[in-house]
Design a protein around this nucleic acid. Structure first.
Length: 239
DNA sequence: AATTGTACCTGTCAGC
DNA sequence: TGCTGACAGGTACAAT
């Protein structure tokens, strides 16, 4: 949004003044009061490369920047999305506008989390994936946070004890901070803006490890389906 | 109104 | 080797 022709016409010649993030959205504030919003979906990549670099398959956009650098958008599955609109109209992007709190932000306290949990129903794993509940938690980090907190992903959010709520709160923040420290989780395609893979995939305790021993107790990790998503957990540590 | 299932795409891998 | 089906960091939207 808008059309690719409009997008190219409108972004050409502008300058990136600032880069922000909100949930899984990237926001490039441009000159002339515009913001370019990017959601990378599952396989999207934004990478800075030399113009001499070979153009790989699934490259959908190349922006020529100053200093002989290109910003390329590569996305195999094409679930990524772009928006280019006046900065004052960002609320028109539903998914962005409806986002819940930043889990690493100031306002996200244990007290806040407790109250928010009380207002919702459903299974805790599905709630963690709901971007209107908390922004930015995806399938990997949801499973990893629940494992660290020792909570069964199928447990109803309302049935969590004070103890469990507290453990989950700290697990969410811990696992996100670690993920960031390791520069992301490259299970498959993920790379950062310089094309570098992250390292957190080597620290995963349950995600993608069906049948392997739980690092806590040695029981085999199970996989179930929750809300259409694969969910990995230890049936012994996560009751 | 809130929750759930399905569609959108392409690539990879296991099993036959 | 080649085919088929299941599955993959996510979200929007239709259906319940």
């Amino acid at each position: 949004m808008p059309s690719s022709q409009e997008f190219v016409k409108n972004i050409a010649g502008k300058t990136i003044q600032k880069l922000r993030r909100r949930g899984k959205y990237l926001l490039f504030d441009m000159t002339e009061g515009y913001t370019w919003v990017v959601h990378l979906g599952m396989t999207g990549q934004l990478v800075l490369v030399s113009p001499a670099e070979r153009i790989t398959m699934h490259t959908h956009l190349i922006l020529d920047l100053d200093d002989n650098v290109q910003l390329r958008y590569i996305d195999t599955r094409q679930f990524g999305r772009f928006y280019l609109l006046p900065t004052g109209e960002l609320e028109k992007i539903r998914g962005l506008h409806a986002l819940g709190p930043e889990p690493l932000g100031e306002e996200f306290t244990l007290e806040f989390f407790r109250k928010r949990l009380a207002s919702r129903r459903g299974k805790i794993k599905q709630l963690l994936l709901d971007q209107t509940f908390i922004a930015g938690i995806g399938n990997i980090y949801a499973d990893e946070a629940l494992h660290r907190a020792g909570i069964n992903p199928e447990k109803n959010a309302v049935s969590l004890t004070e103890e469990e709520i507290s453990r989950l709160f700290y697990s969410i923040r811990e696992v996100l901070r670690e993920g960031i420290r390791y520069r992301g989780t490259s299970v498959r395609d993920y790379v950062d803006g310089r094309g570098q893979k992250g390292g957190f995939q080597n620290c995963l305790r349950v995600y993608g490890r069906r049948g392997e021993p739980c690092p806590g107790c040695g029981s085999p990790v199970e996989r179930i389906r929750l809300g259409g998503r694969s969910t990995y957990f230890c049936p012994s540590c996560q009751k």
